[in-house]
Design a protein around this nucleic acid. Structure first.
Lengths: 148, 148
DNA sequence: TCAATATGTAGCTACAATGATTACGAATTA
DNA sequence: TAATTCGTAATCATTGTAGCTACATATTGA
């Protein structure tokens, strides 16, 4: 029920992986990237803009322009991608209880604290994966369980 | 950026905490609960309906009717509340890449696997807290850090 | 039995988030 | 100089979320 409908993270990982897969030194255009991710090119530019602000990619306009990875794909943790997009926004959906209700305020505070704990857990989990891992293919959760 | 705008989890925790705080044995109406959570009574009934299906609360109509906790508040982990509402829905927002793009399909599979890892991490983190904890007040994340 | 109270749920609406689309200026290259 | 690509604003369509109304059903108490 509480699915996130925001695909920025998925799209970011997708296009970063595409860029990591470039063998010749050429740049990829937002148009090209958007085709594979099946989203709009403007959207790709917006998402990659955040990645550029974080120093993960560079872009240049014009003929043969486009986007390139700056860092080594094996050094880019998905944790960083997540944090660039997520910032300090809550992970759990928080509500706005009646400010005059004592219990309501207390619950609100607790939920905010719990949200930080969960956000840390998400960040830690995403720290296990790099763009290089995605490029090589992260094994199935089921496979991982069997391997234990 | 990827904030969840779904407040069902927060509202569920809120009203369960309210129910946990009842000292006399009376039931609380959805109307009463909705006031404190600052949401609509119908919405409260919908959310609590899921909690009832999970066996956490019971309800009865009529005069002096309303909602009561079934389980001990100290035994209800937020993990369970989360899972009741979340089910197997992805935590990260996933996209729908071009199905004819090989890399796209591969990335999609990896993201699905990573999503399961993150979902497990969230569930584990929420396993640390119970409704009773929220009733008593979960300490600030900052306070927790200072206590280390 | 009857009135009052609450749930259970369908249906409609308002609002907000997301991402598509269009448009165009600026930068770059061949 | 023409073609290409980014950067970004503005607008629109779609979807998810939750509010709201309405009413059938169940329960209680007088």
């Amino acid at each position: 029920m509480a699915r996130s409908t925001n695909t920025q993270f998925a799209v970011a990982v997708h296009v970063l992986t595409m860029l990591a897969g470039v063998t010749d030194g050429r740049a990829m255009s937002s148009e090209e990237l958007s085709k594979s991710a099946n989203v709009n090119a403007v959207y790709v530019r917006r998402v990659l803009g955040h990645m550029r602000n974080a120093g993960l990619v560079r872009s240049r306009p014009g003929v043969n322009g486009g986007w390139e990875l700056v860092a080594d794909a094996a050094q880019i943790k998905l944790r960083e991608v997540w944090q660039v997009l997520q910032g300090d926004e809550p992970v759990l959906g928080l509500h706005g209880p009646d400010p005059t209700c004592v219990t309501g305020r207390s619950v609100q505070k607790s939920l905010a604290s719990i949200d930080r704990t969960v956000a840390d857990a998400v960040a830690t989990a995403l720290g296990y994966f790099t763009v290089q891992d995605v490029l090589e293919g992260v094994p199935d959760a089921a496979q991982l369980l069997n391997a234990e």
